[in-house]
């Protein structure tokens, strides 16, 4: 068995992704949570690059790490969340959360157990569908209707934001 540099990267990125996702959930400070989530996004973008889905990787960073998480940080930093202002959590709420999370985990395991995905080897560093030209062609020919509908969705969200902003 040959260990290529891609294997090493895959293991590294997987470990980083899982570790930072766990840290994101468990860390007490919400600012740390946001930063760990950004680290997770970067690890996942690395996985996308290994799959040669470059556009997805970059857009993941630009949109999620670069824009949405900045807004998260804005809100968290300005709210000045810390231990004193933390609301008292109900014990039942915690148990319910754990149960819901466990159910999701169960479903994921059940779904992936029988899936054929484990026999398939991910086409690492090959396949050009993730490159921008092919992706664009697919989006504007085969999937043009869902694509345009989603853009209408964005437009309506923007209009809604403007309406809410103009209310005062």
């Amino acid at each position: 068995m040959n260990i290529t540099i891609i294997d090493i990267l895959w293991w590294f990125l997987s470990v980083v992704a899982i570790f930072s996702a766990l840290m994101m959930v468990t860390s007490k400070n919400p600012v740390y949570s946001v930063l760990w989530l950004i680290a997770t996004f970067f690890a996942i973008s690395g996985h996308y690059i290994l799959l040669n889905a470059q556009f997805l990787a970059i857009v993941n960073i630009i949109v999620y790490a670069g824009a949405i998480m900045v807004l998260f940080l804005f809100v968290i930093m300005l709210m000045n969340l810390n231990k004193e202002t933390e609301p008292q959590k109900n014990r039942w709420l915690k148990i319910a959360g754990a149960l819901a999370g466990g159910c999701l985990m169960l479903i994921l395991v059940a779904a992936l157990k029988d899936a054929a995905a484990k026999e398939q080897v991910a086409s690492v560093n090959q396949g050009n569908i993730g490159l921008i030209k092919n992706l664009g062609k697919e989006l504007f020919t085969t999937y043009v209707v869902p694509f345009e509908i989603s853009s209408v969705l964005f437009l309506s969200a923007m209009v809604g934001a403007v309406v809410i902003g103009k209310k005062e």
Binding site: Q54, F55, A57, I58, V59, I61, I62, A65, G66, A67, V70, L131, I132
Partner: peptide, 15 residues
């Protein structure tokens, strides 16, 4: 292949 978009992504992270 992404070229200039990389610059954009890094700039957006620079915040």
């Amino acid at each position: 292949d992404m070229g200039i978009l990389i610059v954009f992504s890094v700039v957006s992270v620079g915040v």
